[in-house]
Computed example of a mutant assay.
Amino acid sequence: MRIQELLGVDLPIIQAPMAGVQNSKLALAVSSVGALGSIPCAMLSHDALRAELSHIQSQTQAPINVNFFSHQPAEFNVERDAIWRKTLAPYFREYSIDSSIDSKALPEGPSRQPFSDTVADILEEFRPQVVSFHFGLPEKALLARVKAWGATVLSTATTLEEALWLEANGVDGIIAQGLEAGGHRGMFLSQELGLQVSTYSLLQQILARVSLPVIATGGISDAKDVSAALSLGAAAVQVGTAYLLCDETNTSTLHRQAIKSNRSHKTVITNLFSGKPARGIVNRVIQELGPISELVPEFPHAATAITAIRQAAEAQGSSDFSPLWCGQNTIGCKEISAAELTLELARGVEV
């Protein structure tokens, strides 16, 4: 079966779910021209999730991919949080934030909750045709609920071992996330960054060992990249960074400025903003603390303290403490409609 038939779309293109910079508006625009739009759901409240799904259902009959995290939540560690706040203390002082305040008293911002029975209850009302996961898969009973209503299940692999695990545990398609990809790495069997490889290397490793459709993602930014991935055997591609400047995104002004500048030529994988490795544009806090720190609390508890500094800096027009998620290849980023960009990406693709 071709991937288009599996996903219910015309084009072998998936818009990557990108929390913080999009809502259903982007997904609907992408789906309107026959590709698969996606919405990131892990940071939505239950009410917000139901509202987004209701809106989508009222606007289209086309499939939309709903994406969730499936990590194991870490317990809040008071000692580690105190160490992290001590590390950030100079920045707290710079922005006149009381660093002695308990982190639980700081604004938490959006949560990052793993897929749950409550979320499955909401989804079952709408029965989305495609459900994808990041950081592995939910427990077997939850996954069985999703598959019971006929949903196609996708999940991200960043290594061959993860791909084999996903195939053995019931996914219908594997998203091969190469090292070039922006945003959070989907790593779940190991947090060893040395195991991460480029998109095309990973794609070929996985294709040689699994029988499921494999979707390439990471560094795919224009029609030539799409064609190259498909020619290597990818069933489809997933594109994120190229959409960041589109009319339908919520990408902030500061984030847009960074993407359009020469700063976007230098991206690194960092754990400073959430506790998990993610690729973004280098800024002041990454330069001064280093991209990877052993002092950072586990995901998602790192976010609370640094978010307080981020908000203060952004209020002064600075992205020094902002997570400027971005992949290594920004050549395809354009300030046009997402529908137009999708059709450009699909140029030359056999339908």
Rank of each mutant, 00 (worst) to 15 (best):
R256C: 14
L295K: 13
A51K: 10
Q238H: 08
E162N: 06
T159F: 13
S58E: 09
S54L: 08
T217W: 04
E139G: 12
L6R: 04
T307D: 14
Q205G: 02
Q4A: 08
D102K: 01
A82D: 13
Q22S: 15
A176T: 02
I206M: 04
E294P: 13
I259F: 11
V33G: 06
Q72N: 12
F68G: 09
T251G: 12
I259H: 13
R80F: 08
D225L: 01
V239R: 10
E167Q: 15
E298Y: 09
N169R: 07
T158V: 15
Q238Y: 11
E52L: 01
L207H: 04
L207G: 07
D225K: 07
I281R: 06
L295H: 12
E248Q: 14
T199L: 05
I174W: 08
S274A: 15
A176W: 02
S293H: 07
T60N: 07
P17F: 08
S103T: 02
S231W: 07
L324Y: 04
A303S: 15
F188P: 02
L230A: 10
R263T: 06
E314R: 05
E288V: 08
V351Q: 08
L341W: 03
F133G: 14
S319N: 12
R209G: 02
F126E: 13
E94A: 14
M1D: 10
L289H: 08
S111W: 00
C246F: 13
T267F: 13
A144Q: 15
I286P: 12
L193I: 03
V282A: 04
V197L: 03
G219H: 05
N250A: 14
A16D: 09
A181E: 00
G280K: 05
A234E: 10
V9M: 06
A157K: 09
A208C: 04
R127D: 03
F76G: 01
A315I: 04
I220P: 06
H184V: 02
E180M: 00
G182R: 00
E125Y: 05
M43P: 04
T217F: 01
I309M: 02
R310Y: 09
C326I: 00
S261K: 12
Q311I: 08
S274M: 05
G194E: 09
L137Y: 13
I331Q: 11
E248A: 12
G37A: 03
V30N: 04
G186K: 02
L254P: 07
L230I: 10
A346W: 08
L195H: 04
K147C: 15
T199H: 03
G280H: 03
T156S: 15
Q196E: 11
P277H: 13
Q22D: 02
L189W: 00
W84L: 07
S201Y: 02
D172K: 01
E192N: 12
L341I: 04
S70P: 10
A229P: 11
T217C: 10
P73A: 06
S32N: 09
Y91E: 08
T152K: 11
I97K: 02
S100M: 00
V296R: 07
K266A: 14
L179K: 05
Q204P: 00
S38E: 06
V21H: 02
A144G: 15
V210Y: 06
G34I: 06
E139S: 15
N271A: 13
E75A: 14
P107Y: 10
E162C: 09
R185H: 01
L254H: 11
G327E: 03
A235M: 07
D102R: 01
T304Y: 09
M18F: 09
Y243Q: 11
G194F: 01
Y200A: 00
I336Q: 11
G109Q: 06
G183C: 03
Q113W: 05
